[in-house]
Write a protein that binds this DNA or RNA. Structure first.
Lengths: 213, 213
DNA sequence: GACCGCCTCCCCCGCGCGGGTGATCTGCCG
DNA sequence: CGGCAGATCACCCGCGCGGGGGAGGCGGTC
């Protein structure tokens, strides 16, 4: 059984999340808090497996609360919940130690899956990378991106990379030197905060930057 | 404009595909055939970009027709369409040179995407790998697979691999020697017919063996 | 008993990959 | 004009990865 604590300043949101999560037989919501300070206290006493945390809250916000919580010993997995895709607070929260993030408009199944995922492993894979990429979804061949950290060229390279091409093949494909491709790939990995091209591909799929089917 | 030839022995199916594809402004169905021999002749005269081919047909079947078509110079991309997931004919067709395969129950958008994909690049990525994996979807942690080529252990390794883990990390995770993991990974790559772990991850996503969100 | 598939581990070899660093050229912006 | 970001290419280094073998144990089937 996975125990969950909900943190959001709106009772309506908490109720909704509770209803969604409790419909899964392996998940129990053991507590709710309406601000970061209360969340910290609640987590210390209840020791849940997972915390669903709104980033934007009065007084102690989700970032500070996340920071406090992950400093506990054997801390729960914190999943940040947000309304907006382009929310810099989410970025900060991920840096503060959150295991992943979800949009409030995600489906019920998404929430259930997210809780299970962070509980099992160490994932909601590469939240930082996915966060960087969600805002970059757009032009297929290299059109105008915006909030993304990736440049047009980098996005193009990532797309080919996610097609399973080697650096040399990418170079051939877009008529560049292999060295240049290596540079772009290196920059992509750095910007996404992932270790290698495998993780970059995963981030590309998980974020919807490329999509299956 | 992408030109397409449809090959299926049932007029109903051809009509359906035609309606779906012509709803896309960049796709035109330039011809239809109801068996493999007619398909071959039609493709030679019309030189379409893409052929959607049923595998199961009377007289000259889809496999033989695919073989004939891909032997033309500058042949069109052949996409095999089938009713059943566990259809060995599909396997043969892929070996015969088909660029990908689709289930008849796929969505309208899937068909449109498939046509565009094979027309642009060289993909419907790793059709052989995906074919191997679609039948393997099932137990998350290593339950009973069946028609899959992968053993339980290999499926488990692939799942971790698709989580972005290195060989050493996989070895740690399931308490094996790195050498053993290397062997499993090697076998996985061979069975899927892909070159490296990056392509294996892509196949895992494209096949639904692992799924985003 | 012989056989085979699966799992486990081992060695060697070549190469692609990723990190670090630096260079040049372009175009944009203040 | 100077500054800066993006794009291009370069070299070095270490290592993880993948291919090619081989080998032993274990549990099934014939």
């Amino acid at each position: 059984m996975i125990t969950v604590v909900l943190v959001d300043d709106e009772p309506l949101v908490r109720s909704g999340l509770r209803a969604i999560l409790e419909s899964a037989s392996d998940i129990t919501v053991v507590g709710e808090a309406d601000d970061g300070a209360a969340a910290h206290a609640l987590v210390r006493s209840l020791r849940p497996d997972v915390v669903l945390m709104d980033v934007r809250m009065p007084r102690v916000d989700g970032i500070a609360a996340t920071r406090l919580i992950v400093e506990l010993d054997r801390p729960p997995a914190v999943v940040v919940v947000t309304t907006f895709e382009n929310d810099d607070y989410v970025y900060d929260a991920l840096r503060a130690g959150a295991r992943g993030f979800l949009l409030k408009r995600a489906s019920a199944q998404d929430f259930v899956n997210a809780v299970r995922t962070v509980h099992e492993g160490d994932s909601l894979l590469f939240p930082g990378a996915i966060r960087s990429l969600v805002t970059a979804v757009g032009a297929p061949g290299g059109g105008g991106l915006d909030g993304a950290r990736l440049t047009n060229r980098e996005a193009e390279v990532l797309r080919l990379l996610a097609g399973g091409l080697s650096n040399a093949e990418i170079a051939d494909e877009i008529h560049l030197g292999v060295e240049t491709v290596r540079t772009h790939v290196g920059n992509i990995l750095a910007k996404l905060g992932v270790r290698d091209r495998v993780q970059a591909v995963i981030a590309a799929y998980e974020s919807g930057f490329v999509s299956s089917r």
